[in-house]
Amino acid sequence: MRQDRTLADGGFTVRAGRLRACALDLADYWTPYGSGPYHSGATKVAVLAAAVADGTTVLDHVYGKPDVLDMVALLRQAGVDVEEPAHGRLVIHGMPDLPTAPSAITLPADLIEVVTWCCASLLSPEGITIAGAGMDRALRALAPELHVLRTLGVPVRTGTDTLTVGPAALPLAPVDVVVSADGVFSDSQPFLTLLAGFAEGVSKIQDTVWTSRFGYTDQLAELGVKLDARDGSVGVHGPWSAAVPGRRLTAGDLRAAAVLLLAALHVPGVTHLSGMSHLARGYADLTGQLRRLGADITEA
């Protein structure tokens, strides 16, 4: 099989006349924690390549979250024979001439938007009900996060296509959370950190996927949250009681923007936030929805 590789403009292009089947262990993309930032992407690329490869590919230690499982379901609808003989293994019988007949699948609710509203439930004295098609699949995917919420003391009630969160009695209980490829999502980590700020005592949240994803903690500290971020984890010393008004904060990424927005709504007076343009990358209308719940948000 002839391959051409081109590296230019910060990216690369690979061309192959035909893909051939092989055996791959996706654990090669783990960090020493048995997790890591490349496991999800490597699994998805391997699954797609195996689907059109010539022969049978065996993938071990696959990333088992819904984004991969839904991809497998769609490939099966398209006619690809995918076996799951054991947990963490996929056997894919490739179809080099994969038919192009249309297939349809209903995606679950956006998982981290659900987590965002779980965090926002502390803003509402009645709690918040989240509804959407495919919510049952989203809730299965978020089982680790829901366990953390219950441990914190946040009431969680599930329905066929709904999730009701709160109201919660403050202070919450401290938690010890490990973010990993098969557990709590790394994207959920900032929201759980904010919730831990309302707990009585010390909480620890360790991220084994994106170990440096704590840039938002300095900004939360500006609002009075007591945090200690180091070595891939953050310690939260609660409860957060001395909220500091009048701060000007900047969000460096999508989840930081959402967390700072929710945190600012707990602070008396006016907080000025910049970097909120990041929200458009992950939410359809987060600020508008919060306003409909009564939040006082003005966009400059």
Results as ranks from 00 to 15, higher is better:
Gln206Val: 03
Ser186Met: 12
Ser186Glu: 13
Trp210Asn: 03
Thr211Pro: 04
Glu200Arg: 11
Val209Phe: 04
Ser188Gly: 11
Val209Trp: 00
Val202Cys: 10
Arg213Ala: 13
Phe198Cys: 00
Ser212Met: 02
Ser180Cys: 15
Phe191Tyr: 14
Pro190Glu: 11
Ala199Val: 07
Gln206Glu: 12
Val184Asn: 01
Thr193Trp: 08
Glu200Gln: 12
Gln206Trp: 01
Pro190Tyr: 03
Gly183Pro: 07
Leu195Pro: 04
Gly197Ala: 02
Phe198Gln: 10
Leu194Lys: 08
Asp182His: 15
Phe214Met: 01
Ser212Trp: 00
Ala181Lys: 02
Val209Ile: 15
Val178Ala: 14
Ser186Trp: 10
Leu192Gly: 02
Lys204Pro: 00
Gln206Leu: 08
Leu192Thr: 01
Leu195Asp: 06
Ser186Cys: 12
Gly201His: 00
Ser180Lys: 13
Val209Ser: 03
Ser186Ala: 15
Asp207Glu: 06
Asp182Gly: 15
Gly197Tyr: 08
Ala199His: 07
Val209Arg: 02
Glu200Leu: 04
Ala181Pro: 02
Glu200His: 13
Val178Phe: 01
Val175Ser: 08
Val184Pro: 04
Val178Leu: 10
Pro190Cys: 08
Val177Asn: 07
Gln189Pro: 10
Phe198Tyr: 14
Ser180Pro: 07
Ser203Gln: 06
Gln189Lys: 11
Gly197Arg: 09
Ser212Leu: 01
Ser188Asp: 14
Ser186Tyr: 09
Gln206Asp: 03
Val177Gly: 08
Ile205Ser: 01
Ser186Gly: 14
Arg213Ile: 05
Val177Arg: 05
Phe185Ser: 13
Val202Lys: 06
Leu194Pro: 09
Ser203Tyr: 12
Phe214Ala: 03
Asp182Trp: 12
Phe191Cys: 07
Asp207Leu: 03
Pro190Ser: 10
Gly197Val: 00
Asp182Ile: 09
Gln206Lys: 09
Val209Leu: 08
Phe191Trp: 09
Val209Glu: 03
Glu200Ala: 12
Asp176Glu: 15
Thr208Trp: 06
Trp210Asp: 02
Asp176Gln: 15
Thr211Met: 08
Gly201Tyr: 04
Leu195Ala: 05
Val178Lys: 04
Val209Ala: 07
Thr208Tyr: 07
Leu194Glu: 07
Ile205Pro: 00
Trp210Met: 04
Ala196Lys: 09
Val178Asn: 10
Val178Glu: 15
Ala181Met: 14
Ser203Lys: 08
Trp210Gln: 04
Leu192Trp: 06
Phe185Gln: 01
Thr211His: 11
Val179Asp: 06
Thr193Val: 15
Ser180Met: 13
Thr211Asp: 14
Asp176Ala: 15
Lys204Gln: 10
Ala196His: 07
Gly183Ile: 04
Asp207Arg: 01
Ala199Phe: 13
Ser188Asn: 09
Gln189Ala: 13
Val178Ser: 14
Leu195Phe: 08
Thr208Phe: 05
Leu195Val: 07
Ser212Pro: 00
Leu195Gly: 05
